[in-house]
Design a protein around this nucleic acid. Sequence first.
DNA 1: GCGACTTTGTGCCTCCCTTCACAAAGTCGT
DNA 2: ACGACTTTGTGAAGGGAGGCACAAAGTCGC
Lengths: 221, 221
Amino acid sequence: MSTAEAARRGVPDAAVARLPGYLRALTALAADDVASVSSEELAAAAGVSSAMLRKDLSYLGSYGVRGVGYDVERLASEIAAALGLTQDWPVAIVGMGNLGRALAAYRGFAERGFRVIALLDHDERVVGDEVAGETVRPMEDLPRLVEEQGLAIGVIATPPEGAQAACDHLVAAGVRSVLNFAAVVLAVPEDVTVRKVDLSTELQILAFHGHRGALAEAVAP
Amino acid sequence: MSTAEAARRGVPDAAVARLPGYLRALTALAADDVASVSSEELAAAAGVSSAMLRKDLSYLGSYGVRGVGYDVERLASEIAAALGLTQDWPVAIVGMGNLGRALAAYRGFAERGFRVIALLDHDERVVGDEVAGETVRPMEDLPRLVEEQGLAIGVIATPPEGAQAACDHLVAAGVRSVLNFAAVVLAVPEDVTVRKVDLSTELQILAFHGHRGALAEAVAP
DNA sequence: GCGACTTTGTGCCTCCCTTCACAAAGTCGT
DNA sequence: ACGACTTTGTGAAGGGAGGCACAAAGTCGC
């Protein structure tokens, strides 16, 4: 089964969400000059069960060797290919408030072909400011960024009120992948993919578990 | 069914993860002086189906009125109670690099009873620095923060190499809820809840979808 | 006070994901 | 060259979550 076939048949979303974890574990192994790894070892490194790892990898193809395991370099490159990480992914960050500036300064984006090519804000008082060595641009620059630089991913770091407008700008310019840090549900055409990251939600889920743990203790000590 | 009963019976994790979204939508409605809302309307605001919303809420109890809908204030307060947001949740941020400083400055934490009570770092060259109006403390302060201030949630914003050590410090001090921004899988005792937020993973998932979209187009235009 | 209407709460069904378990396949020692 | 051993890849079973559809329950108008 070729990579193209696998992509056409469709990898379950749940499996896709784990692939980056496998890739990271493999990269770490490669850095330690490990040449080969079993599903058991790799699964432990990625924090999943070995059966799940094997099934996930089987969606991509047969890249292991029975009785031996997986070639680290080879598997890493296959996963990277499946994720589409062989190409460059230009990223723009919209909203230069506290969070936006933090994201602009954060090095995590630079990994794996994600390049922050522009910082934008709709507020003309912020446009022109220098943030993390880049000049903040107006929203009107978006269409040009898409056409001339192949901008593909937009990161929304605006306050909740401005998020939908920012998203609309991105979509109108042709961006079809959005990472949303604002605490709102964004409405988008169905060919646009949105992923949401919300610190407040995460904390509230943690609160539930902490709360629940304390309660369970009180009920059945 | 009382809240305590509901908590004992157990709300599915998938439902818990959506409760913060409902709560946020309700808070927005309350701010607009809306007194009552139907499952259809609330579901739309939270971006889920009405059937799912009703099922999720049914895990908490029967707080709706048939033929009418839900009382906004009442439901908000029931969800807040279920999530454990009636109490205060002191939070500590560990790791004062780029990301840690950003999180310290980010106001999103202040919502809903989450108070950042301490910023920590293991590097003595950073300890004592002023970040977002707070003095950075050494890791050794953790046990005291737990005992004297009820510290309950730890946020890990260290580089990947230091994340496990930071987590061990938190757990040893008695923290049982951890929000992990580092790109590693943390090993913890089973009574500790860890949630992971990873920008790189999110971007890679977006890359997959962008990639796949382009591929599907090429195959069947 | 009663009937028509609205909207919730939930039993049931379906689908997808995870886990189990084993046959297939390849390696390594002799 | 062959047999014992290891580890993958996958068919089948099991479990859980989401959607459907309707009975139950309460409101509102008359």
